[in-house]
Computed example of a mutant assay.
Amino acid sequence: MIGHIFRPKTFTGWHMLGVMALFFGTIIGVNVTMATFAGKSWTGLVVQNSYVAGQEFNEKVAEAREQDALGWKGVFSFERGVARYRLLDASGAPIRLEGVSVMFRRPSYEAEDMTLELLRAADGSFAITPQIGDGLWLVDIQAFADSGTSRPFRENHRVEIVKGSVR
């Protein structure tokens, strides 16, 4: 009777088929899951057309040199949830602006990116209270001066927001 209980089981072809199905099913399942996550995350795309971006490079360098020659300095701050911007001339006097546009971008995930138009504050600066979360942000600013310059003053900042203020 005891020999009947401990009798060795035979490993059949059906057992091998089950082992193979579990093995390859696990590999395929993991691959499909990873491919799905990869398809829903950051694409890695920085520009739509790298050839066109390369052709525009020299023009952008010339614009940056013209902007630097003005001697203007932008002052961006983010404190207690308020983004504030002002533009100063070479002597430190404020420059009257028509408007300021700010794009908040995550460095590696475009789903939270937003472009906002700042509003003129009583002190002459431009400000807005955006609803953005903590973490790293790329801030691209375009200030449109009343001085008749044909191009906006452009400026970029990389900031870390912690509890509503720049760290």
Rank of each mutant, 00 (worst) to 15 (best):
N156Q: 04
F23V: 04
A111V: 14
T115I: 11
A145K: 00
V159N: 00
I27Q: 13
A122V: 10
D140T: 11
Y109V: 01
I141C: 10
R106C: 05
L97H: 01
F11T: 11
R120H: 05
R7C: 06
F153N: 15
Q142E: 05
G18K: 09
L70I: 10
V19C: 03
V19T: 06
L119F: 14
V61I: 08
K9W: 06
E63A: 00
F78C: 00
M1G: 06
M103A: 06
E66C: 02
E63V: 07
W137G: 03
D140F: 12
D140W: 02
V61N: 03
S77T: 03
P152C: 08
F23Y: 11
I27P: 08
A111Q: 03
D123W: 07
W137L: 03
L97Y: 15
L138P: 07
E66P: 09
R80G: 09
L22D: 11
A83E: 02
M16T: 07
S91Y: 09
D68C: 12
G44M: 12
D113P: 04
L45W: 05
Q142Y: 01
S125M: 04
A38P: 09
V100C: 13
I28N: 05
E155W: 13
W14S: 13
G18D: 05
F6L: 13
A145M: 02
F57E: 11
I27H: 07
G135K: 09
V102Y: 02
E110F: 14
G99Y: 11
L116S: 07
S165D: 04
A21C: 09
E66H: 02
Q67N: 03
K60S: 10
D134T: 06
E98C: 12
R84K: 01
F104S: 08
G54M: 01
G99F: 10
E56M: 05
S91E: 11
R105K: 01
F153E: 08
S101C: 12
K73G: 08
T12N: 05
V82I: 10
F57G: 08
G99H: 14
A64H: 08
V30E: 12
Q55C: 13
Q67C: 00
K60L: 02
E66Q: 12
G25Q: 09
A62Y: 00
D140Y: 00
H157C: 03
R80M: 15
D113S: 11
R106V: 12
I132R: 11
A35G: 10
I95H: 01
R167E: 12
F57S: 13
E66R: 00
